[in-house]
Write a protein that binds this DNA or RNA. Structure first.
Lengths: 144, 144
DNA sequence: TACAAACAGGATAAATTTATCCGAAATAAA
DNA sequence: TTTATTTCGGATAAATTTATCCTGTTTGTA
């Protein structure tokens, strides 16, 4: 469904959000340990998230990654996915055809429509704050 | 969403079904031309579909791939996807975690549930016959 | 039986994704 | 200003997916 990079990116962003609530910055090392991901690869993904303005990086001593507290509730899951995997997951054709629309649909176009729409709605309606609070309360987990 | 192999596999199976309705067998060459896919790679995927008993192959002169006419209406999209990509698309964790269930959910477990369930229902309720008839009637297409 | 047609499957290569390493640049504190 | 810390980003490697090639085996027909 999502790429490995995207899976790491989602978990990393949630962890950064939790720490940012507490006014703390985190390093790639801390993040990869917390979400159980390869450190250097995770660092690359963080760079992409910075470029797409999902998270912020502060270079130098006492630096790290953080997210503006006031921004956490406005960030949606769709923004994280878009920053890493793009929007093909809910905008592209289910069978990879160049052009696939109402006028020239692929064999599963109609069947897929509702699934993709629901996925899109879910991603756009789920906020980072919500995901972070569920981790904090112990309702969900970042690693096995 | 699906792998390239699975995309080709779905299209190939639909085309074989259409030809089988007419009592004809088809070759990998004919299939790859019709669905616009690499021939040798498509042949590999056909082998997998044969092993999973989705399609049948007849070796030797006048051979080719076919599907039992009476079986076409009983084959579901889920069987094709399962044969090539397995069931991880709707049974695995959305964030790739080893264990992810009600007791130990990943951050998006609940949010994803309805999407994955709808996808699963769609795949299990869509028959090969239905997809093939839509191509025959010109309601959908196998290539751009 | 000999031959040609057609799938099976191993070996290999190309492309993409995932992952690692290391030096450069930036920054806070001493 | 020097030093320690930390992100940035290029180069490279490993793993997986996608794709190609070639030989073997099967099978129908002459």
């Amino acid at each position: 469904m999502f790429s490995k990079a995207c899976e790491y990116g989602i978990k990393a962003t949630i962890f950064i959000a939790i720490k940012s609530f507490e006014g703390k910055r985190v390093s790639p090392k801390e993040i990869s340990e917390e979400i159980n991901s390869p450190q250097a690869f995770t660092a690359k993904i963080l760079q992409a998230l910075v470029r797409h303005h999902v998270i912020t990086s502060i270079k130098g001593a006492y630096g790290g990654f953080e997210i503006d507290k006031n921004k956490i509730e406005t960030i949606k899951l769709s923004q994280i996915v878009n920053a890493i995997d793009g929007d093909s997951i809910y905008n592209g054709c289910g069978l990879g055809m160049e052009t696939c629309d109402e006028h020239h649909p692929c064999p599963v176009h109609d069947k897929f429509k509702s699934v993709r729409d629901e996925l899109k709605q879910m991603l756009e309606n789920t906020s980072l704050e919500e995901l972070a609070l569920n981790i904090k309360s112990g309702a969900s987990f970042l690693k096995t």
